[in-house]
Nucleic acid binder design. Sequence first.
DNA 1: GGGCAGTGGATCTATTATTGAACCGCCAAC
DNA 2: GTTGGCGGTTCAATAATAGATCCACTGCCC
Lengths: 360, 360
Amino acid sequence: MTLIPHRTVASQLAVHLRAELKKGTWRGWLPSERVLSRTLQASRNTVRAALEQLKADGLIEPVRGLGNRVVGTAKPAIVEHQTRTVGVLIPEPIGHLRPLIALWIDELKDLLIEEGYRLRIHEGRQCYQTNPARALDRLIGQHAHSAWVVTLSSEAMQRWFARRNTPCLVAGSTYPDIALPHYDLDYRAICRHAAGILLRAGHRHLALLNRESRRAGDVDSERGFVEGVSRSPHRDATAVIAYHRDDVDSVARALRTLFDQKNPPTALVVSNSYAYLSTASVLAQRGLRVPQDISLISRDDDPFLASLVPEPARYRVDPHSFAKKIVGSLLQMLNRSTSLRSPAPLLPKFAAGGSTAPRQ
Amino acid sequence: MTLIPHRTVASQLAVHLRAELKKGTWRGWLPSERVLSRTLQASRNTVRAALEQLKADGLIEPVRGLGNRVVGTAKPAIVEHQTRTVGVLIPEPIGHLRPLIALWIDELKDLLIEEGYRLRIHEGRQCYQTNPARALDRLIGQHAHSAWVVTLSSEAMQRWFARRNTPCLVAGSTYPDIALPHYDLDYRAICRHAAGILLRAGHRHLALLNRESRRAGDVDSERGFVEGVSRSPHRDATAVIAYHRDDVDSVARALRTLFDQKNPPTALVVSNSYAYLSTASVLAQRGLRVPQDISLISRDDDPFLASLVPEPARYRVDPHSFAKKIVGSLLQMLNRSTSLRSPAPLLPKFAAGGSTAPRQ
DNA sequence: GGGCAGTGGATCTATTATTGAACCGCCAAC
DNA sequence: GTTGGCGGTTCAATAATAGATCCACTGCCC
């Protein structure tokens, strides 16, 4: 599999070269890249990719016009015997997270074990507060992981990690001007699409039920949702956004404010599958029926949604492929093969379900 | 460095598979190509390319419709328990299981790694059919695990394992005359308790929505439920049991037969949290309100239930302590220190929630 | 006997790694 | 200064791989 770096030719060459260096085959300067390319039976590009890894480890130092100088031989031993663990930062006990998140973290654990890494889960509620610096300092200082995977991260957390050179992968979206490697769903496109679906079904008063905390993904959602409505040909279409926290009551409150107004929405996009459950049951208590009285779309997926009647229209994600992308980026980062580009965000497939209907 | 492409993934896999074959990891038949592709993290095409090399070496012999047969019957290597792995047998992909089950399997994985064991998850739908002997023969024969953990097991499966001396722990209840070590919740006590709660609230027509498959835990539930009603001082109390499968439609059908009869129940115990979701939403569609029109209790717990309005009355379980019990029994079994007694079944705490009300 | 789920066999497309070849600016030596 | 070799960069073509979809075959269950 090409995503796993050590299976690529470049990484195999890097391993080989590291061994040769350690043996002391070359002192002073490496053979030129063109020569290496010939002796190692690989193209110069591939050799260069391998050399890049050695450079990142501080073993060699390329000098323009001269060659690759051998620098230090002490380092690699330390690199080898490093802990080889990866930390995952989550805000709550894993049992409280959404099942889909638990699933991909689980997959990530398996994939990393296969690669010789152990995954350590850190439930650090303090790191998710408004000023996380102290908590993060302590946590990251205490645990010498090879890399960190940060889930559900706040802007302050992302800024903190961006300032350090701790290897860090954001599982989720990043805020506009933060240059951290990240991987997430394309929430902007999702919500734009959801708005389009509802508008085409004849709805004109749409609402987005969004998390109050405004994580990057939520901001993107909002942006996409508003775009979807404002760029539509329907000039009479309106978009309202209501905010909720993670508890049931706040969802109920948000719904009350939405539906107690004069011109209540006829279609709702819910940004979170737990909130979808709350929404569906609160609407049922108010005597509103899905989809006859109101159409619902869930932005997030979770296995339990399949047990609802009607089945929620939602954007389906495969936790396995999500975990694979994450682990791919992670290993790339751990092997320092190249400077990491964030993979393109994932655009999940829309499953129509039965929770939307044309406006009556 | 040879010119033979040692560097392609396919060739690396071939090397790896050759080594595994020599070790005697698989006897008789190789795992199916699709399974190999998953465990080896490579596409089936690549796996097939690797298998082709083994075939050319005469190590395996593919049989259409059956699998890849191991030919070179060198010798049953004596490396029996060097593997130090534990197999978990589940009927569906882990993402389809209830989150709570996924959670304790996850915990189990962590705890076992700490003990030096690897957990291998086997999704064997065939092993859950009416006659699982063949599928089990093949699965258990193929994988030389130190022990097996069997979840959601049928009676036939338990009998199969009881006849062997394969170390096996049943995660769940056992059928009456089967002497396998097991650990589960005390479903009999739970359902007896649930019936008592509803009777004390004035309900007289109770129903239990139970799984059709009648696993041991479901049988216990039924027994406890009937006991709870029949032993009550209320002579006019009746207990009905309706059966459903694991799909939403069958739950809807079961509910229809319950509520279309002349004297419908006013209180319902649902044996499964997914079925609880289906039940709640079907009732909402019929215009019945919880708890005003009907009281509900969920026998099983799952995190997502907390997002429902009203919050379901249910029996709460801590997946961590459940996993610890399982791993405790398992390690006792693996170390063969003493003959294993099954730990006492767990009686979880009742959380009242808001889904029950006195009969109007 | 038919339906069904699982198997290897085969094929297709999209993505990615790798190749092989340009060209650039830099360096030291002639 | 010129020259040839060096690393740095880019590019298009190619090979490997992933991932999906069919097929024919097998055995089990109904």
